[in-house]
Every structure is written in C-alpha cells, then in structure tokens.
Nucleic acid binder design. Structure first.
Lengths: 109, 109
DNA sequence: CATATTGCTTCTGAATCAGTAGCACAAGAT
DNA sequence: ATCTTGTGCTACTGATTCAGAAGCAATATG
C-alpha cells in the first residue's frame, strides 16, 4: 500500500531526499520520461516501457499521482503542471546521455 | 556481476534509456547527490545514506565507476568531471523539491 | 449479441535489497 | 613487535520488490 510508505526517506524531513527516493524506484524516471510529449493510456504506457509488468506500473502511477506529478484524465495519464516542471529540469538529459554513451563506447574498445 | 548487466535497457540502443535505468536503481541518485560537494570515503558515504547496506553501496559504486560518473581517488570516492556535469542538470532539484513538499503538505491537511 | 479494448488485480517464482557479521589490509600508538 | 583503530569490502540470510502470465469487470464497437 502507498499509505505505508509516505515516501521512503521522507522521515528525514528533507524534501530532496524524499524526491530522490521516489525517483529512485524502478521505472519511475522512465514513466515520467515517456509522458514527456503526450498523455498515454495505461496499456500504451506499459508498451512504451517495453512491457513492464502491470502491477508495478499501477503502483508507480499511484505513487506519482499521490505525489501530484502525474494525473489521470480522459486521454489517459499525463504529467501535471508540476510534473512538467520536474521534467524540464531533466531537459538536457538526452544530450548528456548521447555524449556519455560515446565515452562508454570508447572505453570498451 | 556488473558484466552481466551492461546496463539494463541499453539493448534498446537509446542512451537515454540506459541512463534512466541506471539512475533508477535504488540509491543511485542519492549517492550522486551525496558526492555533490566533496569526495567521501566508503564508510562516510554509507553513513550519509543513512546506513545503506555495504553490499548495495559497493554494487552502486562499481556501476557508477564503470559508467565513468564516479571515480576513486586518494580522498575516497568522487564525482568525475562527467559526473559533475550530470549533477548540474539536477541543479535546481532541491528548489523544486521544497515547493513540491509544500504542495504535498497542503494536500494532506 | 459477439468481440475488442482498457484498466487493472491476483498469483508465483525470480531478482534485488537490508542487515549483520566479519575479514584483510594499512597506519598509528605502545 | 604488537595492539588498536579505521578502512574497503565480502558473505550470508531473510525480507521486500519485481517480473511475467493469467484473467476479470467495465466500456466501447460491430
């Protein structure tokens, strides 16, 4: 249940810790990322995440909704205004990742 | 072993997915965050993460080192130049979290 | 009415994590 | 030389979380 874990780490009283903990659960970042452009239905979201199990997806969606980051509308699940704000902080992440992947490739060869 | 999982999700060939997967493992974001100011020893890092188990910490450090985000020096573990670049992208995260925590508080009352 | 789609729930086995204990090594004190 | 102290880390066991398949109730569609 969600109520049992108000957000792991939030007992420290430091919001950043609660946030890092929330984002550090499997698939959470990915789900936010997949909602970056348009709302997605439950099953579309599941497909976008390469078939992640519905039980976990449901759990993540519940957590993100309770955290006011994701909301459910007629078109499916979407980022809230607040969620879009969070996503913007990750903005250049794609660019960083490209450069990073290049470095990893060179390291391995 | 690390070799077994070159980084989960990297098979998609999209670096961003590999990155989100790496960062989405428990404690990974937190470890990067705790190294934001100064290098920390293994045990200092463990303490900063509220006593996270050494086995997992060791695993995360190995992953982050292989990913060229963290490096081990004489003063302990530190972010690499690349790692600091990644951290900068998370820069305003603390501010966002403060605002977010305030919204959650109002929601609950 | 039949079929399809959607949002889930339930279940079981597998992977991951938590927590304790402790080892091997190095530096400093006695 | 030896005793302590601190360090990085490994091994182990039990708890939690996740994966994957199956399927159900509700709504839509033919």
């Amino acid at each position: 249940m969600i109520v049992d874990t108000p957000v792991r780490g939030s007992d420290s009283g430091r919001p950043i810790m609660a946030l890092l903990d929330l984002l550090g659960r499997r698939w959470t970042l990915r789900v936010i990322w997949e909602l970056r452009e348009a709302p997605l239905s439950f099953r579309a979201l599941q497909a976008a995440c390469e078939g992640m199990s519905p039980s976990v997806l449901n759990q993540r969606l519940a957590e993100l909704r309770e955290a006011l980051i994701v909301e459910a509308g007629t078109e499916g699940y979407a980022l809230s205004a607040r969620g879009r704000g969070l996503l913007q902080l990750f903005g250049p992440l794609g660019l960083w990742a490209e450069d990073w992947a290049e470095a990893l490739r060179q390291q391995q060869s």
